[in-house]
Amino acid sequence: MTVTIYDVAREAGVSMATVSRVVNNNPNVKPQTRKKVFEAIERLGYRPNAVARGLASKKTTTVGVVIPDISNAIFAEVARGIEDIANMYHYNIILCNADKKKEKEIRVINTLLEKQVDGLLFMGGAVTDEHLQAFKSANVPIVLCATTDENGAIPSVDIDHEAAAFDAVQTLIKNGHRSIAMIGGTLQDPANGYARFQGYKRALEANGLPYDENMVRIGNYRYESGVDAMKYFLELPSRPTAVFSATDEMAIGAIHSIQDAGLKVPNDISVISVDNSRMASMVRPQLTAVAQPMYDIGAVSMRLLTKLMKKETVDNPKVVLPYEIVTRQSVGSI
């Protein structure tokens, strides 16, 4: 049978209120009494009911995390940063995979709120009116992680994706490239898609290079779409000398398409991406990439959420973290 707080109180010869104070680390308990209660807990194998404690305190010390794709190494790194800080502040995590599908994201958000989480971290694509409506119905703090809303009304932690894309394309241009293609994400995605596309276009414009829509293919962030996009570029009458990819996985697909066609990277075509996941250093040649501080994005997001949950003062609810370009072997000069 389940051991209750009443059983512990009877075993220790104290009141249920005293057991409750001991379990909840209330300092107003004599050391001798505290020792007696802990001994009773150990003998009986009592485990406090977190749900009941949450109902009493109106706090569950649980945070809901909506993640687009747990199989993606980039998001796994963010989740690790979240969990490490959550453990530091004694919060538990409920991690939900939403596949970057709006309907599933909304359903998961509502499910987490029904579970009485104390706060919510949202990683996803576009923050739509439906998302904002779900967030508005919540009575708990929400932080956007590795994404932002259009109006900047919700606290968020991310990098400047447009600037990151601009700098990546600038790297290619500084190496003499003038015919630069892009493998992008969906333009409905404000960060990986639209912002990085805008950074690509702005870099071309800043250097007096024409924008050609034939030099842009929209992928789905996966390896296969990088393979297909690069096959398309290779069949153009005048193929590009360099490719900017919105993600490492698509960039690696592009590299393999180039190699399958009997060409070399970077001798024939240079490739650069944004992410700098572990895969970037595993592919050959190793991939030059804009490094997002994914672990830090997760850690800072969770720390910001803890401040909001504890109603602490937050000086800047919109945090933009720095990035850097990691130079490897996939970009050459012409």
Rank of each mutant, 00 (worst) to 15 (best):
G125F: 02
A146T: 09
D118W: 09
A146C: 13
I159S: 03
L95K: 06
L95G: 05
T171L: 14
E130M: 00
H131P: 08
T128I: 00
P155M: 04
T147M: 07
G125C: 04
D99Q: 10
A126V: 12
Q133T: 15
A138S: 14
I173N: 10
V143H: 02
A138M: 05
I106L: 12
E105G: 01
Q170T: 11
Q170K: 15
D129Q: 12
T171Q: 10
V127I: 15
E114Q: 12
T111F: 11
V127Y: 08
I154G: 06
A146V: 07
T128F: 06
V108C: 04
D129A: 13
S156C: 11
V117K: 10
K101A: 11
L120F: 02
L113K: 09
A98V: 13
A165C: 08
K104W: 00
G125R: 03
V143D: 04
L120E: 02
Q170Y: 07
T147K: 05
I159C: 03
V169H: 02
D160P: 04
K100G: 11
L113H: 10
V169L: 02
C96L: 06
F122A: 06
E114R: 11
C96F: 03
K102N: 11
D99C: 00
E162R: 15
V169D: 03
V143N: 02
A153G: 11
I173F: 09
V140Y: 06
S137D: 11
G119Y: 01
V143S: 02
N151L: 13
A163P: 01
G124I: 09
I142P: 00
M123L: 14
F166D: 05
E114S: 13
R107F: 05
V117Q: 11
I142L: 08
T148A: 14
G119A: 08
E105H: 00
I109T: 11
G119E: 01
K100C: 10
E130W: 03
P155N: 05
S137H: 12
A146Y: 10
I106V: 08
R178G: 14
C145F: 03
E114D: 14
L132D: 07
H177W: 01
V140W: 06
I106P: 07
L144C: 04
A126T: 14
I154A: 07
K100H: 12
T147C: 12
Q116S: 13
K174T: 14
I142S: 03
I142M: 08
Q116A: 13
A153W: 05
I159W: 02
L113Q: 07
K102P: 12
T171A: 13
